[in-house]
Simulated scan of single mutants.
Amino acid sequence: MKTKENFSWGVAIIAPRMYPIEIHKGYLGNDKKMIAPFINTGLMQQGWAYYGDVFSGGNEMPTELSATWISYAEKKFWKIETEIDKKTQDKIRQLFIEGYENKALSGTWSHITYKKITIGLAPGGIVILWASGLNKKTEIAHYQAKETFVSVNEFCRNPDEYTQQEFYDDRFEDYVPKETQEYIKKNGVPLTLYEEYRTKYNYRFDLQFHKTDKESNDRESEYVNGEKEIVKIEDLNSYQTKALPSYCRFWFSQYNAEAEFDGGEILNAFKKISKNHPDKNIDIEAKVAFMYKTVDFIVKCEGEEIPLQNVVVRMWKN
């Protein structure tokens, strides 16, 4: 890979959880040649942290991205036709060549590389590309699609002879989760949320224990922008500029904990506190309760505190 332009990759497509989409057609290509078509992808809403199932792949550098899809929550089609520019190609090449360090279940570290180019399609026509591999997902590029029109008869069989609006309404009712339907009725579709999730902040976790303890292992982390990694133990206490966490797995001396963050809640807390304290380091204080019953999280900076009340925490004894 270090000496050849060709390298092997699979392509996968994902969508945010609760916001289902379905591909009409698309491909990754090179010089007007289709390399990896998107065919029969079916309904997708696995979540932003998902790696995606491989539909096809190639062994050449893709230079063009084309995709047309329906967003059932928005009742509309989107289309992206874009060149993958040289800067992005260089980033893809560098990521696949350099690879990364991965920690196996046995606890040993080894050097591996990425296996997929994952394409994320979010409300508002937001398109994200990641390099994906075992325990690792890194953003490559982002694009903005344009609203388009595809007739129901072109998109699928229409035995009930639905009009376009009847088709949209029927699929919205059948495919969009009730929770999402209720949210949209109150707040509308979150058109900018997944773009805001790409914002990075300089922060760290500050763990506080009832008795003397510390993290005893590397931390598994997922982020609201779809990235994920295993953070090495020597880096746990340092401030780093990253997207906000969506999930973390912590290991202590006798217990371990999982924390699932509410993306909207933590984003609003960081937006507020960074506005009040521009360019300052931010702590997410994690207070481990007596007898390790739970963990409470507070966003803190220069004396200002914002509790995170919607974090789902699970604790286990090692």
Rank of each mutant, 00 (worst) to 15 (best):
42 G>V: 01
313 V>S: 10
238 S>A: 14
22 E>S: 07
234 E>Q: 07
125 G>K: 04
167 F>W: 13
235 D>F: 13
155 F>K: 12
180 T>R: 01
163 T>F: 05
81 E>H: 11
312 V>Y: 11
209 F>M: 06
240 Q>I: 12
303 G>S: 09
257 A>V: 00
169 D>F: 09
24 H>S: 01
90 D>E: 10
189 V>M: 02
303 G>W: 09
304 E>H: 03
218 D>M: 02
281 N>L: 13
318 N>E: 15
36 A>G: 02
66 S>F: 15
110 S>Q: 08
288 V>Y: 03
187 N>Y: 13
318 N>T: 14
104 A>M: 09
295 V>K: 04
19 Y>M: 11
80 I>H: 04
307 P>R: 07
88 T>G: 04
194 Y>T: 01
249 R>M: 10
175 Y>V: 15
32 K>C: 07
294 T>N: 15
306 I>M: 10
77 F>W: 06
47 G>Q: 06
97 I>S: 09
96 F>G: 10
311 V>Q: 06
171 R>D: 06
41 T>L: 04
77 F>G: 01
173 E>F: 13
182 E>S: 05
274 S>L: 08
296 D>W: 07
101 E>S: 10
242 K>I: 00
97 I>L: 09
22 E>L: 01
64 E>S: 14
217 N>D: 09
30 N>E: 14
28 L>I: 11
144 Q>F: 08
200 K>P: 04
196 E>W: 02
95 L>T: 13
169 D>V: 11
72 Y>H: 07
56 S>Q: 09
65 L>G: 09
265 E>T: 07
258 E>G: 01
107 G>A: 10
14 I>M: 10
65 L>R: 05
64 E>P: 10
58 G>F: 10
205 F>W: 12
271 K>E: 02
241 T>I: 04
95 L>V: 13
24 H>N: 04
297 F>E: 03
126 I>F: 02
115 K>E: 13
270 F>A: 07
202 N>H: 13
176 V>K: 03
36 A>M: 04
51 Y>W: 06
161 E>A: 12
52 G>K: 03
66 S>T: 14
169 D>H: 12
196 E>Q: 14
3 T>Q: 02
